[in-house]
Structure formats: C-alpha cells, structure tokens
Computed example of a mutant assay.
Amino acid sequence: MAAAGRRVVSSRDAERLGVDARALRRAATDGRLVRVRRDAYVDGTRWGRATGPARHLVQVSAAARALPDAVFSHESAAAVWGLPVLGGWPSSVRVVGAYRGGGRRLAGVVHRSSTLTVETESRAGIRVTTCSRTVVDLARERPFATALAAADHALRAGLVTEEELALLVASLGPRRGVRGARHVVAHASGLAESPGESLSRARMIEIGLVLPALQAEMRDSRGLIGRVDFWWPTLGIVGEFDGRVKYRRDEVDDRRSPDDRLWDEKLREDRLRAAGSRVVRWTWDDAWDVARFADVMRRAGVPLAS
C-alpha cells in the first residue's frame, strides 16, 4: 500500500496494484489507511501527521476525482491556492456552479449555485475559482481576520494584485457580504509576512488603534539592526508577533538551533532598546482574544486613533 502515502487511492487503483477490496478495507480498519470519502483512501501515518490545510487539500483531491467537472471554491479553493484559513478548516468541501453530479447530494460536499460568472483556473488538475475570487468569497463570508490573512498572503505571494481585488469587489454591487469584502481589500497588504501578523493587524483595526508601519528597517550607530513586524515611529514602539514556528527547526528555513535563534533575537532586541525603542511582544493566544490583545496594546502605550 505504499502508493497510498503519495496520493488518494481508490479501489480501482488498489486493484491495479494487486490489492483486492477486502485488503483495502482491512487496511482502513487497522489504521494503515484512512477513508477520507467514499472509495478514497490515504496513508494513515501521513494523515495523522497532516495539518488542517493539508487534510482539506486531500479531501478536495478526493472529491475532484468523484466530481471531475466541479469548481471548488471558498476554503476548498484556498487550500489549493495555498492560502491560510484562520479559525479552522471545514469538514466538507465547497463547490460552486454546475457539476456532473447534477442535483444529487454527495456526502461531504457543499454545493451552491451562483448568479455570478464563475471565473476558474486549473491548479494541479483541480478546477478552482481564481485566487482573487477565492479571496473575495472568503471576505464575504468569513470573519475579518480570517479574510485579511488570506488576502495578505495572496498579495505577498504575487497571486493577486490590489487592483484585481478592488475591481472584483466593485463589480459585485450591493450583494450580501460586499461591505465586509470591501473592508478587507482596503486593508490588505503584501507586507505582512505571516498569518499571525495579519491576525494582529486585524485586531488593531477592529479595536481602532493607531496603525503601525509594517516591516520597517531599524538602524543604530552600528548599522542595520533588522526588520520589525510593526513600528509606530511617533511613539517609538516596536511590535513583534511571537509565533512558535520561528523557533522550530523543521518549520523554518534557518539551520540555526532554536537556542541560537533565541539568543540572536535577544541581542537584536537589546539593540532596539538601546537605540531608544520600546519593544512589545505578543503570542497567538494574545491575538486571538480581542480584549486580551487590546490590554497588551494599552499597556504598551499604543493609543486609539483619533
């Protein structure tokens, strides 16, 4: 069953590999394989290690085999495009427009018709809504922070432009959710380097704080100190989002040990403070809780916008 570690496997695939249906079912029963939908199996070990977006992408791939004419949208398109979705991934996949399944309901598939023209692209053999449409769809339905993280990533990765997003939102007229989408597009920035930074900025906007510059280069008499996540120049405050990922060797493109990275971070912060900046740090837990994040900002001295 090694092939299941690389892709979704159906009973027909298994037969070509010399594995009969009973063996396939036994492998699913004992956990060597996981059934992600009807007649679609993946390697159990890899599934157990997979993150939320990776699991949803597998579900999309499996559904695409059953629905070859489907156009995947919303979070399902986001998984294909590689966009982050804060707040959790749905258990069902999303498709829009007509598909070969006709009107019948399929387990694990949420189908919505649309009065809008559905512009699509093919990514890895899967038909999805365009990246700009995907971002705007999320912005019309999901919370502001979730949609902002997706929009920021799409801009940073060069998958969309600000002009494309603005034109698409303008073309929607007064439809449901357009006001929220317009709010997201107005604040989206390709300068945000992580979903955590996008979440933090979303909270600043929701609270109504004075907004900082993003990814500012900080210098002292010795030269460049480095770039900081957030910088309030008139306040002399540096803001840094602390995601644990930056200290895990297997999830960053940095071969230094976690201890070395922590030490370098301390030296960097010492230089920032010596140059006259106040440094405030916060975590995922802080940013998820609006009231808690507002308290972090208040204690740091970041005021409300006038």
Rank of each mutant, 00 (worst) to 15 (best):
V296G: 09
A40N: 03
G87D: 03
L148E: 02
R38W: 14
A21F: 07
L214C: 11
R105S: 15
R292F: 12
R176D: 07
D137E: 15
D69K: 09
A14M: 04
E164T: 13
R255A: 13
R201L: 12
V178E: 07
V34W: 01
L168H: 12
R25M: 07
A157D: 09
R182W: 09
P68W: 00
G97E: 04
A213V: 13
D229F: 02
D270H: 09
S122H: 14
H111Y: 13
V296F: 13
D43K: 04
R112P: 08
R55D: 01
R203W: 06
S194T: 00
Y247Q: 09
W81H: 15
A66Y: 00
H111P: 11
S194M: 00
G87L: 05
L262T: 06
V210G: 10
H56F: 01
R16P: 06
A216L: 05
V96F: 08
D220C: 13
V135M: 03
A287L: 06
R6C: 10
R278E: 15
T130M: 11
L33F: 13
F293V: 09
S200Y: 02
V178N: 07
A202I: 01
V245C: 06
A64P: 01
K266N: 05
V290T: 15
E217Q: 14
V96S: 03
F144G: 03
R271G: 01
L148S: 04
E251W: 11
Y41A: 00
A213H: 15
V280K: 12
R140G: 07
E269T: 09
V118W: 00
E206H: 10
D43Q: 08
S122D: 14
W284I: 02
R46V: 11
S61E: 14
